[in-house]
Design a protein around this nucleic acid. Structure first.
Lengths: 344, 344
DNA sequence: ACGATAAATTTACGCGCGCAAAGTTACATG
DNA sequence: CATGTAACTTTGCGCGCGTAAATTTATCGT
């Protein structure tokens, strides 16, 4: 490894013995040059380790190799996990994923979109805040950047990939009804469209089963779901406000908070003898299997959502996807899977 | 809002009536131009919404406004939370944070460092993998980019900010010793330097108290700590392998897994009558207060670590920090705070 | 109203690379 | 060995902006 610094492609081309345009061609696609010259370039690369200046590259290329990823709250285990998968898939496909989090705030979401757009990415995978999003800003972004929307159902972009709340919630409702008292529904703060969809799915499922829906909505507390489940849910438990012994929470984090409250108040949770409550969740967060008792929930298909989102985006980028954009774009919904554990 | 697209600063300067160099000056520092011309520019900005091309800007500026953040595993709640804070502090200071995760793998860490370096960031905040890092690669990076290392104690960069394991662990050990049986130590897979430091801190603390250290090390399982705590810890509990009823886990995630195993095996955890085990953790993860029972732990000072890291980096960037680099760089360690909850 | 000074303008160059056109060389085929 | 084509080289322009030098204009105090 020679330690003379290579300042630019000009210098590198001279030490490698290959002309600059050919070197440029190599960096855009190593397979596009003759094997013998490829060897000479890669030999020089080993001796001098040079990388083209990203800024100069991206300034001149029409299409960058960047892929933007935007999530509403990266500290949420669901998004942390899905981002992890998406990033790996992008890297494997030769793209540069770059992650932004809105941290639950519209201004930060708009900032991120704006920054992202100015990076001129080849495409973007976004899960908007949803209800609190500046929808016009999001739409403007999706009109400038090929975008796949995931998880948060907002009618923009070139495709939507998410989970089928109208299958997964009824699946759980039916299970709970046939195995005990019908569930009431403990709703998460409506930070995104899933909150409303799940409540509606619950309503419909209950009516189909011939029961009256019982929905409990509490003060919004942003993304601090465990706390909401613990404090508000705990209060409802203590007040005996829930009309049945079975509580379906609109997501696992809420359920984990509620589970904690039940534990501390001495209510035994589970489906066996001597249990005062059944508590179920939704999503199968990475830590749900370690709650006490382990949480019965509906698993979202993380892997499929990540893979389909990424593959769909690649097809859009390659122009292989139909042109429909906005409300009529294609949607892919994955079914949830009942995960039977001890809590319900 | 006029919808004629502005293609570059040239066009924008003509519609705003201000010359391009002055416009350029404005974008580098809005306060550097006369108030009257600033008004004219911002008026045009409202009518045309133009943003300088990032790539062109960064290609020419010696110093970009980018700040790189690298963590070993973004799906870990500790890093998710600390990144959230760091990002906000960077944005507030007018920088562009950009987050990378090594996802627990050296190759991805090296990739991230390489990508990051080619972005020519103003500075970087990194928590290397540590034990498994390619230390030479990390060092090369820190020699090219002003870097503050946090959490993961690796002797490179311009400063280290972390928590003082040799204060926090003894704090917990002393509490456990004076309130019951002396603790054994359940060690996390050695994914980073904290693992070893905490074990050593435990050893020293126990000896100072006049007890024999009892360390339990299990098969490494990467970053899936809850699972390790649940499976391996559960096995140790079932085999009655722990010589005392008190177990100090080297982090909260491990403790949460162990708590879950104890629950399922019917061992009551806590410090009251009828409890078979005491379990304590370290870090005070966001979800530790919602475990069953709530976890007694040592809180890392998230806020101070984030703020000090960022502020130190800014001082290094501004050249206000001493030049020491590598092993002799300054270190700031924050004390942990005992968080008494019900598990120990 | 005047000069002093600050700020804006004009002009020009450079950053590092993508890309196109024209000419040259390498390589496979018969 | 002639031939065709694929790959390479040379040359040169352009991307959008930072920045410097020289010049002109605006602003302020007296």
């Amino acid at each position: 490894m020679d330690d003379t610094k290579i300042r630019n492609m000009e210098e590198f081309s001279s030490v490698s013995g290959i002309s600059r345009p050919t070197v440029s061609k190599y960096f855009n696609d190593p397979a596009s040059v003759r094997p013998s010259t490829r060897l000479r370039i890669e030999d020089a690369l080993r001796r001098y380790d040079f990388r083209p200046n990203i800024f100069a590259v991206n300034q001149n290329r029409k299409l960058t190799k960047t892929i933007g990823i935007l999530v509403p709250y990266l500290a949420d285990p669901f998004f942390a996990e899905i981002v992890r998968m998406i990033e790996r898939l992008c890297i494997a496909a030769g793209y540069w994923p770059i992650v932004f989090s809105a941290h639950g705030e519209v201004e930060l979401e708009n900032n991120a979109l704006s920054t992202l757009e100015s990076l001129r990415p080849a495409g973007a995978l976004i899960a908007p805040l949803g209800r609190t999003s500046d929808v016009d800003a999001v739409r403007r972004f999706t009109e400038a950047v090929p975008t796949v929307v995931f998880d948060s159902h907002v009618p923009v972009g070139r495709a939507f990939v998410g989970s089928n709340n109208f299958q997964s919630i009824p699946l759980m409702v039916e299970y709970l009804c046939r195995s005990g008292e019908p569930p009431c529904f403990f709703e998460m703060p409506p930070v995104n469209p899933n909150a409303n969809k799940r409540r509606e799915a619950y309503r419909q499922a209950m009516e189909r089963q011939g029961f009256d829906p019982m929905v409990f909505k509490v003060e919004a507390r942003g993304w601090d779901f465990e706390r909401t489940g613990f404090e508000e849910g705990g209060r409802l438990i203590a007040e005996r406000a829930f009309p049945t012994n079975t509580i379906l929470c609109s997501n696992d984090r809420l359920a984990i908070g509620l589970l904690s409250a039940a534990y501390q108040k001495g209510f035994r949770v589970g489906r066996g003898e001597g249990c005062a409550l059944r508590i179920a969740g939704h999503d199968d967060h990475p830590w749900s299997r370690f709650s006490c008792p382990p949480l019965t929930t509906v698993a979202q298909d993380y892997r499929s959502i990540a893979e389909t989102s990424v593959q769909t985006l690649f097809r859009v980028i390659d122009g292989a996807e139909a042109a429909a954009e906005g409300p009529d774009r294609p949607e892919v919904l994955f079914d949830g899977k009942l995960i039977m554990r001890a809590s319900a």
